[in-house]
Each structure stands twice: as C-alpha cells, then as structure tokens.
Design a protein around this nucleic acid. Structure first.
Length: 415
RNA sequence: GGUGAGAUGGGUGAGUGGCUGAAACCAACAGUUUGCUAAACUGUCGUACGGGAAACUGUACCGAGGGUUCGAAUCCCUCUCUCACCGCCA
C-alpha cells in the first residue's frame, strides 16, 4: 500500500527502499532485544554487587564484577551495530516523502493536475496588450536593473506607487486573514538547521535555500518554516487546538537553473513577499480544515476581481511533505498563461512527527501527533503581475476596490 | 567580544554516587460531597522503543555527545543553548 502510494509521488525505487527498510527494522529489533536483555542482567548484577559489598561479602562481589565485565564487552559490539542500524533507518526515513491522500490524482506532472474550480469559463480568452514588466517600466513601479546592480537578478526594486502597492497588498491580505480568525505573527526570517528539518525543507531542499555559513542559519524560503517551528517540541492541550497563525515575511529562494521568459519580470524571483497562513489542528479534522482554508483563499483571490482557477495537484507534482495540495493560479492576461499564486496543503503528521508537535487526546489520555496545514494567502509578485496586466488600459491602472483604502486612490494615471 | 551563573517531567522547582523515573507545588484528568458555579477531599497523571491478545513487563531518557565506576540526574571532558553584568550597537 505504501509502495503504491510512494510511486504516485514519483519514488520509482519505492519497492527496494521499503524492502530495505523492513529488513533493517527486523535486524534492529533482534539486536535491540539482545542488548536490552544484557542490560537488564547488568542492572541486576550492579544491585547484587551493592548489597554484597554492604554485607561484607567481598569475594562474591569480585566474582560478580568479572561476570559484569564479560557481559559488557559482549554488549559493546552489539550496541555499535544497533546504533548503525538506527542511523541507517533514520536516514532512509528522512528521505521518504509524505504519502499522498487517497483522493490525489495519479500523474507525473502539471498536465495531470485536476482543475477543480474555474472562476470564469472564458478566462483564457482574456487578453491584454502588455506584459507587466513593460507596464512596470512605463509607470516606474519596479526597477529590475537597479536590483541587479545592488544585489543581482531576481531582486527587484519597487518604487513609489509600486512600493505602495506592495504594502497595500500585504496589509490587505493580513487584515483579511486576521478577520477570519488568524493570529498575526512576525517571525524571524533566518532559521536554524533544526527548523529546516522540522518542516521538511531539509534534507529535501538543501541547496534551494540561502545559507549563512558564518552563523549556520538559513534564510527562510517561506514563513511556513519559522511559524510552524514555533510549535516544535510542544505538547499542547487539546483545547489549545486549533492554532491559526498568519504571517507576512520576505521569502528567499535560490531556484538554481531557471532562465528564459518563464522567469522574466515578476514570474520568478530570489526574494519575494508572501503572506502565509498556518494551522495546527486535531488529526480528525485536518481534511475539513483544508477545505475551509481552500474556501478562505478562494474568497481572498476572488475579491481581487481577476480570473483564476484551483487545481488539485497530482502525486507527481506535489511537494515532498504534502499529502494533498490545492494550487491557486491567476490568469496573466498580458502573458497569456496561468501563474501560481497560492498553494494550500495538508501535511497530516509529516511535519508534526519531525517537529515532535503533539497534543493530549482528552478521550484516551494518550499523546497524539497533531496535523499541520498551510497555504499562501497570498504570494505577492504574481498577483501584482496579473493585477498590472489586467487592470491597465490606455489611460492608466485601475485599483481594485478592496485595495483602494490601502492605496488611498482608485487610479494610477498613465505618466 | 569579555566575565559569571545555569539547563531536571505540561509548568515552577527539589535532588551531589546505589533506597530516584525522579520530592513538593501548580496545571490536567477521574471520582466524592454541598442545589448550579466555586471550594474541599480522594485518586490518576512523563516520553520513546521492545516483548505480550491483555493485565503487564524490559530498556533508554534529567540540554547533546563522550568518559570514570560493578552502579551516574549526581563526578570528569567536549559541544550547544539560555540568563546576568560589561563592551559595542539599530
């Protein structure tokens, strides 16, 4: 069953890996039993020596000591082997992706994703003259060249109304999330190695993250990492669930090896802004919560008034840690293509297992792993791209109604 | 960067070699009692892994890793982190 599920996530040698794991586990158990039996004997002997010495039976004590020495020696090599096996199992396990939910479509890539919502059947026939990078230049909203000078490609500089538009989007998104019950968080943007493992970026995405060698810290690729890790090593009471957090952070991605028109303008950046929502919930409710998060993001995207669609990702296109993912794509009217602006996922216990994030089940009294979910609400650059393309006409840029209070205007006239 | 102190269960916090998986208190849970709430009383109450159908039982864990010892939360070494004071600084 696990093998079939793994194959859906494009783990081709899943059979081998699982056989190997099961084999390792059998060996481990066998040796663990032996080691523990020996240790039980040692513990008993230690006690016996104690009483023997107290009662002045020194010869008996000496006898016992030599016996202990022998068992210890025997156990040393067994323990070494046990540690080796445990490490091997851990390494294998860390490299195994989360299993997809039963409803996840089969498939290898974007072509097999399932469109589950389309805001407007004629979306793809919506065309505008200019791509956003030309609008941004004309209106002096973004200067890509300046960013290259200061840092490098993929680090745009937002200017004037462009900068204000960024701030308006961030604030609107945060306010929208807070109104839905999310608590706003301002987390650190640099995270340590443990946090990277906690949410599953490590070891899977080593090399995708910027790394500060001097202090051994990673630049967060998404607020998901610091915000979810807030709850690492926590044992929550059941009544503390669900946890709803939202956070705005810049996000940093190295994204090596990408080039061409797919990455022009705001399509793909090394630094970008994103407002994230994170929930930590009772495992029995995580899928109904996922649907609620999907609805929440849907109404947020819809409020911007542009064509968009929702995809249920197929196994091959899903992330390492996810069990079920909905992607939101907005129509880029100037480029004639869909752009991903949000990804909403249920990670089930994949992250919480690594995080040791548990709660006390009030019915059974047992500790159980919570489930974690997150989603973008929303990622800025492609929203801005689509917005500029969709709302610009020969006279200027119309500001969508929901952003007008933050922009303090409804229109940016053509210069 | 310098100096000093520290790291124990959900929390506070005792514990300097065997009687400590760990006192006490708080929180939590179950029950008793008073009409509800509150209070009081009684009891339960760490985690992981192994064995067992289960009752239960074995092992490990007192920041992490090593060492001394028959025996380590307790002694020694290394590392990490936290706190305080000083220096520097938005």
């Amino acid at each position: 069953m696990a093998q079939e599920a793994l194959q859906r996530k494009k783990v081709h040698d899943s059979g081998e890996i699982l056989d190997h794991l099961l084999n390792l586990d059998d060996q481990k158990r066998l040796i663990q039993t032996q080691v523990e039996q020996n240790q039980a004997t040692l513990n008993a002997r230690a006690k016996a020596i104690g009483t023997a010495v107290q009662q002045g039976q020194h010869e008996h004590a000496v006898e016992l000591k030599s016996e202990v020495a022998q068992i210890k020696q025997e156990n040393a090599s067994l323990e070494n082997r046990l540690h080796e096996l445990q490490e091997a199992i851990q390494n294998q396990l860390l490299r195994l992706p989360n299993l997809p939910h039963a409803s996840v479509p089969h498939g290898h890539g974007p072509a097999e994703n399932e469109v589950v919502f389309l805001s407007d059947p004629s979306a793809e026939s919506t065309h505008r003259e200019l791509p956003h990078w030309e609008i941004a230049q004309q209106y002096k909203l973004i200067d890509f060249e300046l960013g290259v000078k200061v840092t490098g490609a993929g680090f745009p500089v937002y200017l004037g109304a462009g900068a204000r538009l960024q701030r308006a989007l961030i604030q609107y998104f945060l306010d929208f999330n807070v109104a839905a019950g999310y608590t706003e968080i301002q987390p650190p943007i640099l995270v340590n190695e443990d946090s990277g493992f906690g949410t599953g970026q490590l070891p899977d995405k080593e090399g995708q993250m910027y790394y500060v060698t001097e202090d051994r810290l990673y630049l967060a690729p998404t607020a998901e990492v610091p915000v979810t890790n807030l709850y690492r090593d926590r044992l929550l009471q059941e009544n503390e669930l669900p946890v709803l957090n939202t956070a705005y952070t810049p996000c940093f991605r190295r994204e090596a090896g990408s080039y061409g028109k797919d990455v022009r303008g705001l399509n793909r950046l090394h630094q970008f802004d994103k407002v994230e929502i994170v929930q930590i919930v009772h495992p029995d409710h995580s899928y109904s919560v996922l649907e609620k998060m999907r609805d929440h993001v849907q109404s947020l995207v819809a409020s911007l008034g542009m064509p968009f669609r929702i995809l249920k990702l197929c196994g091959g296109d899903m992330g390492f840690a996810s069990a079920l993912t909905y992607d939101f794509e907005i129509w880029s009217a100037g480029q004639g293509r869909w752009l991903e602006i949000s990804s909403v996922s249920n990670f089930e216990s994949f992250q919480t297992n690594r995080l040791k994030l548990r709660f006390k089940d009030s019915q059974t009294g047992r500790t159980r792993l919570a489930h974690s979910l997150n989603g973008s609400a929303l990622a800025l650059p492609r929203v801005l791209a689509a917005l500029l393309e969709f709302y610009t006409d020969s006279k200027g840029i119309k500001i969508p109604a929901v952003l007008q209070p933050y922009m303090q205007t409804d229109f940016i006239p053509k210069p």
